[in-house]
Design a protein around this nucleic acid. Sequence first.
DNA 1: AACGAAAATGTGAGCGATAACATCATCAAA
DNA 2: TTTGATGATGTTATCGCTCACATTTTCGTT
Lengths: 369, 369
Amino acid sequence: MASSPRNPGWPGPGGQARVKAATTGRPPGPGRPPVMADVAQLAGVSHQTVSRVLNDHPNVRPHTREKVLEAIRQLAYRPNAAARALVTRRTHTLGVISIDSTLYGPAMMLHGIERAAQHGHFVLIASLPALDRRSMLDTVDRFLGHSVDGIIVIAPQTSAVAALSHVPSDMPLVAVGCGTRAPLTSVAVDNAAGARTATRYLLGLGHHTVYHVAGPSSWLDARERTDGWRAALREAGAPEPELLSGDWSARSGYETGQKLARRPEVTGVFCSNDTMALGLIRALSEAGRRVPEDVSVVGFDDVPESGYFLPPLTTVRQDFGELGRRALGALVDRIASGAAGEHLRVPPEFVVRASAAPPAGAVLRQAGS
Amino acid sequence: MASSPRNPGWPGPGGQARVKAATTGRPPGPGRPPVMADVAQLAGVSHQTVSRVLNDHPNVRPHTREKVLEAIRQLAYRPNAAARALVTRRTHTLGVISIDSTLYGPAMMLHGIERAAQHGHFVLIASLPALDRRSMLDTVDRFLGHSVDGIIVIAPQTSAVAALSHVPSDMPLVAVGCGTRAPLTSVAVDNAAGARTATRYLLGLGHHTVYHVAGPSSWLDARERTDGWRAALREAGAPEPELLSGDWSARSGYETGQKLARRPEVTGVFCSNDTMALGLIRALSEAGRRVPEDVSVVGFDDVPESGYFLPPLTTVRQDFGELGRRALGALVDRIASGAAGEHLRVPPEFVVRASAAPPAGAVLRQAGS
DNA sequence: AACGAAAATGTGAGCGATAACATCATCAAA
DNA sequence: TTTGATGATGTTATCGCTCACATTTTCGTT
């Protein structure tokens, strides 16, 4: 039987029911959750031996270990994490700070991390009320007070990274989705490579050039994608149109789309995320410009719905699960060994669907040159 | 490899560096974080007075309080949560269990709760690896070991609710998004009311009847929405078509849409979430049936993108922020007073956009009757 | 047999906070 | 002025666990 009958309501700390017997002994109170001494007594060993069994120390005779385990089972004993943390100074708890878990990317990252931490760590979350240094420090402070073993920050914005530089350096910390410039351990998808692939793809389809709807310039991911787009343009000798930018929302994509729809020379657009691409496509459609016949659109993220947009969206997929695993791995390494300063990059995957096609009357680039 | 007794890597209590002066005194170690005794010494008071200041006890002279606060500031002292938890048996930590934070609803709920808990509570998260009783108990167990003050469960599925009934009853627990049947405190949006509104709206537009694409029947929300749909149909005397159902995904909506597109008598569809509506609309469009001219579609959730679907989606909005706040409030009440058994319902909001219209050649119901 | 090394176990001292109680200070009422 | 009731502060005892060290086995040697 896994869970044996639970004691009736535990009297908590203040209860007058706190009956204690002797200094050394275990109070016979029935409502009290069992402690190590209870287990020791039942197993006929010392509390230290129980501790050894719990912590997988080698020097315990199999027979003894068995006795202890049986007692633990019988009492439904569970070690008290606070007591353990008090002496070891390790809580097996990780803090995750995120800026806005409403957005797809951050939400998925969080999920990925949590999934990866499932075994061996608790995950504490906090979202930043604002992006300034102060709230970042406050949040880290809260975590510090809770003695987290390490912190993962999902705040891919320049200001967040700046705020991070004021965090006590002895706290293991990993940033996800951050540019390489910062002097801290970071894990991110290779945004520039993804953007380059998307842009090259459009160019390869025969588009004269590719327009780009960037994310907010305060976001490092947005900047990197813009860099990748620019690099691909340059490398192909294509003219660089003026930069357009949105705020990740469908609304901003829609507004940009309305502007772009009026310009017949626009035949290929790379959006910095899928949501803006959705808005853009709607604006284009409303203006009578068909996607992909008149205008090709490529997104970034590969949200689960993007395969069901009208038309299905060609986009760049980020593997958030992998990102989470890597971030956790890096953090655990830092906690264990104190190593620092890596910048891990996870390659994105290009997903071809139906929102991009050769421009009307164009020849494929490779065939043409 | 088993953990060796002393690990040189971490700056904790380890090493021989733990120089302590006297029993009462504070070790002069410079790298050690300050403890209450350090503050007491600096302020020239006893540690208990420091504790009083920290806990807002009334009986401290303003002057003394000021001295202590100054010392705290000067040392950048932060109380040790583990030590405090050990004696008070309260961690100010809440556990949130969710089934799949990849889905929009659960993700938003989590965010709402976290937002609401910002002040005063830490939030520990865990997602259920599976839906059986065992993993639910294991997860609760992990939280119990961490001494969380209470638990919020986001698992609006029948099996999850069933598993919940085995949780020790002395742990304050609130379920969000769960039907009223279970004998536990729950907070949820009024799914039935939302579905009723949506269905009535379609009926009011003149549709002969309304088809319904339900979510998985294992989800309570899905069932409640189906109930609401059915009630509205009955109350209007409309025929009840056979029930269709999906798995919340756009793909399942798409597949359902393909079937529905072949049947000309289908003019109004209520989908149990926006994502399925998206897939449905795509299938309809591909089959040449225009939305809303030929078929009207209404969703549920109001995801941020739904205003940018083609056409913009008429849907039922859930206020996840409010839901989170209510859930937290209910939990805090339970922790404080032990009150139980409420079933809070948050009313949804109907959002009219462009995906529903009167059927071709129909008269508005009110005008017709 | 005798002995010492290694394995197995026990003992006492904290970790850093709060709770309960003891003590001293202060002040209004007798 | 004395006195008792508070108010403000200090002292001591835990909370439940792990660490360092002491002690007792258990063996393989010579």
